[in-house]
């Protein structure tokens, strides 16, 4: 069919790409995790100090748990927003479907930073939200916890990741053959029973994919806490960022990164297995 030379030529670029930009950096990161910094210099001396520090210093565990809590909240909120939205678009939007779909997608083209700053102006002490609440005399003084709090981080991340949750759910719902919905009603199931017994189970792969997106992306996010989080909402990626930057402790940063990477990979692996279990034909 194809000649050996052709096959080689086709295979080389992607292999090079994966090798140089993926495997090599990961290998370097992995190696760094077992080195150490002495007197402000990186020393290539194999040791497990970094990992020991991770598990003994309560700060890291505390920040990691906070990160997981925030990521879980974001996942839950974006599922609660994204699923009904996808359901409405797929089953009840009629001719407005295409238009509404575009409305959901368009924010994805707007820079993350722009959206982060937009939230800053909305949530700040002299921001739009506080101004509005005072105008209505609901509050007398600016409410400070809107900005620089885990709440703000969850809000911004939910805003940013809901389209990512929406998309796979919408795709799954669109793939449900409509005669199945009719068959369910034909057999005596009303709308809610049809949803619970047919639509929801058949959309579980999309739901899992969406949840995995939201959770994994939130878990590694450092911009939202930087922009709207404040010290009470520092997340694990912020720690990594400072370790690689100002703190100049690449080995410890690498060790944390390896841990996050392992958690992420096992999560994705688990969701993929689950998705397979819930896929039919």
């Amino acid at each position: 069919m194809y000649s050996r030379t052709y096959k080689t030529l086709v295979a080389v670029p992607p292999l090079l790409w994966v090798g140089v930009f993926l495997l090599l950096p990961y290998a370097l990161m992995f190696a760094h995790g077992f080195w150490l910094v002495r007197d402000g210099f990186l020393v290539h001396q194999w040791n497990v100090q970094n990992y020991r520090a991770l598990f003994t210093n309560p700060l890291y565990l505390q920040v990691f748990l906070r990160t997981a809590r925030i990521a879980a909240s974001v996942t839950l909120c974006s599922l609660l927003l994204g699923y009904p939205l996808a359901y409405y678009l797929s089953f009840h939007a009629g001719p407005r479907k295409e238009f509404l779909y575009q409305l959901v997608i368009i924010p994805l083209w707007v820079s993350y930073l722009v959206r982060g700053y937009a939230w800053k102006t909305i949530l700040g002490s002299d921001g739009v939200l506080n101004g509005f609440l005072q105008y209505l005399h609901i509050t007398r003084e600016p409410v400070s916890f809107f900005l620089y709090s885990p709440f703000a981080v969850i809000l911004v991340l939910t805003h940013i990741y809901t389209p990512f949750v929406f998309l796979p759910i919408y795709a799954a719902l669109e793939h449900i053959p409509r005669p199945l919905v009719e068959a369910s009603q034909d057999l005596g199931a009303n709308r809610s029973a049809t949803f619970l017994r047919v639509i929801l189970p058949l959309s579980i792969p999309g739901l899992l994919a969406g949840a995995a997106f939201a959770f994994v992306l939130s878990l590694g996010d450092f911009l939202a806490p930087l922009l709207v989080g404040g010290p009470s909402a520092t997340m694990i990626a912020n720690i990594v960022q400072s370790l690689f930057g100002a703190a100049y402790d690449w080995p410890l940063g690498a060790a944390i990164s390896v841990c996050i990477l392992l958690i992420t990979i096992s999560l994705l692996f688990a969701t993929e297995r689950l998705e397979k279990r819930w896929s039919f034909k």
Binding site: L180, E182, A183, S184, D186, L187, V198, L202, K281
Partner: peptide, 12 residues
């Protein structure tokens, strides 16, 4: 009750 053209059995 209806027997559908492509049967519409629930795959799950």
């Amino acid at each position: 009750n209806t027997v559908f053209q492509n049967y519409a059995l629930f795959p799950h």
